[in-house]
């Protein structure tokens, strides 16, 4: 009955292959380093969204806020800190992560008591508000955004550096989440998703569990924000940092496409989505947004349970 054994790949095989790809990719295909870096960013996006949306049943459209906080924290620390590039980057990442976790604690205490669609709408407002605040705040460059300091290395090395950094972050995020989902905490998240009132009535400490989950997502998102801002070299309040209409929506889509609430679903979703998107940009230029919109419709209509869910259902049908 065990269909996953023997002929199929184990987690460790897939992780090993991905680690190899992550390490060798930028060296073999240096021209694609930026695209590969964005792929790892997408993996972080999908994984962090899935912790709430997939595992815990809280569909957040505001996770982009933590990414944006990471972008801006790095930019401000690097601008005002007077530190050399890498020290500045490291301090910016730390400050961003702390700020995002604090924000998650505050927003979480205020918003995680709201359930279902109301939480989704509330967080959507959070993301939009953050973009508007950043766009009107002179200290962070208001509508004209902020430029990050120049990367000190030689031409082309910046892409490689951030490609590896984002790979390391995605890998760390995956391993931490994978471990967490194997603990009681992972079960508690699922219990909250399946029946919140029951979880309360069984004595689970649901509020701290939910806030911790969001804080953890915020932590990884902020780190990804600081790295991405430095890779791009410039942050626009609405198009990069608090890009709710692109990054913010993609997070949700990738997790759903791959299969939310599964270990590999978000990773798979990020890969498929990112590669398809890159192909659209290359071969359908001018129509890429139309094609992307159609892809979104196809995902929602034909893969409501994601690729993993579709695959599991197919296997079930094949065996019965």
């Amino acid at each position: 009955m065990n269909l996953l054994s023997a002929s199929h790949l184990s987690d460790w095989h897939i992780m090993g292959a991905l680690a190899l790809a992550g390490l060798a990719g930028p060296l073999l295909l240096p021209a694609l380093a930026t695209q590969i870096a964005f792929l790892w960013l997408m993996v972080v996006f999908a994984l962090t969204w899935d912790m709430l949306g997939g595992r815990m049943g809280y569909n957040s459209f505001g996770n982009i806020v933590f990414f944006g906080i990471g972008c801006y924290a790095a930019a401000v620390v690097q601008r005002d800190g007077g530190l050399p590039y890498f020290e500045g980057l490291a301090s910016g990442l730390v400050v961003g992560a702390v700020a995002a976790v604090l924000a998650a604690l505050v927003f979480g205490a205020a918003m995680l008591g709201i359930r279902g669609h109301y939480f989704a709408i509330g967080t959507l407002g959070l993301g939009i508000a953050a973009g508007e605040i950043a766009a009107g705040w002179d200290y962070v460059g208001a509508g004209s955004g902020m430029a990050l300091p120049l990367y000190p290395g030689e031409l082309g090395s910046r892409e490689i550096f951030f490609c590896y950094s984002l790979f390391a972050l995605a890998a760390l995020c995956f391993l931490v989440f994978r471990w967490l989902y194997g603990t009681r905490f992972g079960l508690a998240l699922n219990a909250i998703r399946d029946d919140h009132d029951k979880a309360d009535a069984m004595g689970l400490r649901t509020t701290p569990i939910k806030i911790f989950a969001w804080s953890l997502s915020a932590f990884f998102l902020a780190l990804s924000g600081g790295l991405t801002a430095n890779m791009i070299g410039f942050i626009d309040p609405r198009d990069v940092a608090f890009a709710g209409a692109t990054f913010g929506v993609w997070m949700v889509l990738m997790a759903i496409l791959g299969g939310k609430g599964t270990l590999w679903g978000p990773v798979l979703g990020a890969f498929v989505f990112h590669i398809v998107q890159e192909l659209f940009w290359t071969y359908l230029l001018g129509w890429q947004r139309v094609a992307l919109g159609l892809l979104i419709v196809v995902i929602v209509v034909f893969f409501p349970q994601g690729i993993m869910g579709w695959w599991a259902a197919r296997r079930l049908r094949a065996t019965s």
Binding site: L180, G182, T183, R184, F185, L187, A188, N190, A191, M202, G203, L204, R205, P208, I209, F212
Partner: peptide, 21 residues
Amino acid sequence: ENMAISAREAQGGLLSLLRSV
């Protein structure tokens, strides 16, 4: 899993949840 998460120790604080069943 329903049984595991219903155990008494699942009612503990966050730190105690960060262990496998």
